[in-house]
Nucleic acid binder design. Structure first.
Lengths: 129, 129
DNA sequence: CTTGACTCTATAGTTACTATAGGATTTATA
DNA sequence: TATAAATCCTATAGTAACTATAGAGTCAAG
């Protein structure tokens, strides 16, 4: 299939597919006579792997490492494990930050008093302190 | 004070300060004879306002809007309110995403089985599906 | 044989910074 | 006073993970 169909089947935009290829996340596909990219179901699986990783917020660089690891099936999976743990730590850190952030935003929202002038608005006051 | 001291007092890097100036988040400071930027305590307050907003993950564009609103003290603060609500919605959305993400990562981590080969690793398997 | 849909590469834009190069200026030391 | 070190200046490029555009080539249908 050509890139248009590949894009629809995978749910990735054409530009993103070409971008992933440039970044080495997808193998260079065969080309037609007219230099069009040609994909098969194996390529689709590759891309779906990448998409799944991205949906977990794993960076392109780490996905590249995972792909390399996948190609060494007999090695120990400890680095895979470490990568996931690290990703989990990142998520936990971000969640903690967001909780604090949410609390402050909520407090600000309630401090507004509503229907104030900007001068009297509790939000602006709290941002100014 | 010159930009070096201003940077230390505010906790913003020199480059970031110049960047904020270019983006219109800080007023253009007076200059010395030798063209060095000169700041006063008012400028410091401005920068602290920006920093506070940034710590709440408010975008530079929205901060610009807030600054404009601050300069119209007699207007209604409803847009300020809306902006904060919107920010809160963003945070909530992201938290929800992260919760789902965390759950999947945790499941993956436990699926590894540890000390496996990559071939047998539950993580890679789950990423492949 | 031409129109329209699709594809190609290369390049620039996005956000919020950070880092660098190559100068100019000021301050401290010899 | 000369010079070295510290600080400052502008302009430009790099970061992550895409998205968007320009300008050209390819292909199937009418």
């Amino acid at each position: 299939m050509k890139i248009g169909e590949f894009s629809k089947k995978s749910g990735c935009s054409i530009q993103t597919i070409r971008y992933y290829e440039r970044e080495g996340l997808l193998l260079n596909p065969n080309r037609s006579e007219g230099n069009f990219r040609l994909y098969d179901s194996k390529a689709l699986k590759q891309l779906e792997f990448v998409k799944h990783c991205r949906s977990l917020d794993i960076s392109l660089n780490d996905i590249k490492r995972l792909i390399e690891l996948k190609n060494k099936p007999e090695e120990s999976c400890s680095s895979v494990n470490a990568l996931i743990d690290q990703q989990l730590a990142l998520v936990n850190k971000r969640m903690k930050e967001l909780r604090a952030l949410k609390a402050e935003l909520q407090q600000m929202a309630s401090a507004c008093g509503s229907n104030n002038t900007i001068e009297a608005c509790g939000i602006i006051k709290s941002l100014d302190s």
